[in-house]
Design a protein around this nucleic acid. Structure first.
Length: 473
RNA sequence: CGGGCUGUGGCGCAGCUUGGUUAGCGCGCUUGACUGGGGGUCAAGAGGUCGCGGGUUCAAGUCCCGCCAGCCCGACCA
């Protein structure tokens, strides 16, 4: 049985950006900060971030990296050392010029990313091959000047994790960057966030400032635009050279280590909204939902409260994250809509009518269906729902992406198809000149991959690869 | 930085062209009653330096000048 009701939001098809803003506001995910471009993450949004961060953190640690923390303030001089890094980040820097009421002798940069400070310490800590590999990660905020902020997607300050590693060999660094890409980012995004991804590497034009290669996970949002979900960079020896990081090898010779860096941010919350949301609000995969199941009392009489409390207890004991909504001074419709907006995967409605028949009503958020369930079957039914939800959301997103992806054989065809989705076109048909043309059409190459969708191998030429072209956030 | 637009209770807006009584509407908020299975009904309330500064006038939300802030569109970005 489908649930009734009209949308509380702007329809997605009518105005996607406005729908997005509506969801962020109505699901109480975030608010604009008082300084332009800054963001207040509200408890519901932060609850999602905590779960996402935990999923990433667990995998980062499994990959051997340990958490550390480096300072927010970076000497301006550090930022000016690596040529491409300078060029890439200077336009985005916030510089502190005063402290304690006086002009600082040397201005200080608010970190836009931490390659430079971290490498300053790597130079100190790395002396011997025995110090390698050095694998650190930090959870932090970063600050970048932004011209057009949008909550979660592009804000002046955002939260992320950034990993930084140093290895004895190029092959090892490369393997590690790839391991992070697939075992941390791809796995978290696909398995936990239930968002299908395309993996590949960036063209020179799209590469991270200071990297020799940038690997990326790219996804399609509900408006058929692309969003970069997580990136992993091979930095080569670029930073090691400018910071003078060297290690003595077993034979006593000195070498620069090979490095990686990688990050994923609160932008993933934006991805969750745009990949799974519908006209009725957010749809959360259970693993990321701060509340998996809400028990909603229709009225507070005829033993409803006793039954609802009991059910919530049973669910909690079964390991589910449960919220009991007993606000019976608020209308039923209002409360239903609230939880739907927030994307809670399962809702259990408890009222006299159900109880009279020994039932409750179970509502599945992502399908917007409701069905009566016998009281004694509820734990299993909620369990099934939570087990199935992520897979069904993922299938839906994948089907959408496939329907909006075109195999193109020429640049012209790719430009045409890119307007309404992704185009897969041989990179040989694009090239750096083609990339310029694409830019003129507000299109970019999101990533390069093999025709079968797999990652290029070490030393493999780009010539036989396919470019995924699309509009992007 | 170039072009277009907007500032009026928490949010969204009307009022301005043609100055004139007490600045209004929707949503939200408070209280109460009736309700209650998808934003329910009724009643009574609270809440405003009309962005800021100056000017014109007997009189300015409304007209004039300046400033400030924000939004949208074009080149960067997790």
């Amino acid at each position: 049985m489908a649930t009734a009701g009209k949308s509380a939001l702007t329809a997605r098809a009518e105005d996607f950006p406005r729908w997005y803003q509506d969801v962020v506001a109505r699901a109480e995910l975030a608010d604009n900060g008082p300084v332009r471009g800054t963001m207040v993450i509200r408890p519901w949004g932060y609850g999602i971030w905590e779960r996402l961060a935990a999923a990433l953190d667990e995998r980062i640690k499994a990959a051997g990296a340990a958490n550390a923390y480096f300072p927010l303030f970076i000497p301006e001089a550090f930022m000016q050392l690596e040529a491409e890094h300078v060029e890439g980040f200077n336009p985005e820097l916030w510089v502190v010029t005063h402290g304690g009421g006086k002009a600082l002798e040397a201005p200080v940069v608010v970190r836009p990313t931490s390659e430079t400070v971290i490498n300053y310490y790597f130079a100190k800590w790395i002396q011997s091959h025995r110090d390698l590999p050095l694998l650190v990660n930090q959870w932090s905020n970063v600050v970048r000047w932004e011209l057009r902020p949008r909550l979660f997607l592009r804000t002046t300050e955002f939260l992320w994790q950034e990993g930084h590693t140093a290895h004895a060999t190029e092959a090892e660094a490369r393997a590690y960057a790839l391991r992070i890409l697939t075992d941390v980012y791809q796995e978290t995004i696909v398995d936990v966030a239930a968002i299908p991804v395309l993996v590949g590497h960036k063209t020179a034009r799209e590469r991270f400032a200071g990297a020799v290669r940038t690997w990326t996970c790219e996804s399609m949002m509900g408006d058929a635009k692309a969003l970069q979900m997580g990136t992993s960079h091979e930095l080569g020896q670029n930073f090691a050279k400018v910071f003078g990081t060297q290690f003595s090898d077993t034979d006593g010779s000195l070498h620069y280590p090979w490095q990686t860096s990688w990050g994923a941010s609160t932008r993933l919350i934006g991805a969750l909204i745009m990949a799974h949301g519908d006209d009725f609000g957010l749809r959360l995969p259970p693993a990321l939902a701060p509340v998996e199941v809400v028990v909603l009392m229709v009225r507070d009489d005829e033993g409803v409260r006793r039954a609802a409390v009991q059910l919530a207890d049973d669910l909690r004991r079964a390991g589910r994250r449960v919220h009991l909504d007993d606000r019976t001074d608020t209308g039923f419709g209002r409360r239903s809509v609230d939880w739907e907006l927030k994307g809670v995967p399962a809702r259990v409605e408890v009222g006299p009518r159900d109880l009279a028949e020994g039932n409750v009503t179970l509502v599945t958020r992502h399908r917007r269906t409701k069905e009566p369930v016998a009281l004694r079957r509820l734990l299993d039914a909620v369990g099934d729902l939570c087990d199935r939800a992520a897979g069904e959301l993922r299938d839906e997103a994948l089907a959408f992406r496939e329907a909006r992806t075109v195999e193109a054989t020429s640049l012209e065809a790719a430009i045409d198809a890119g307007a309404s989705g992704f185009a897969r076109v041989p990179w040989a048909e694009v090239g750096e000149d083609g990339e310029l043309q694409l830019a003129g059409e507000s299109l970019t190459v999101r990533c390069l991959q093999r025709p079968d969708g797999t990652l290029a191998a070490a030393g493999e030429s780009d010539d036989a690869l396919v470019a995924v072209v699309g509009r992007a956030y």
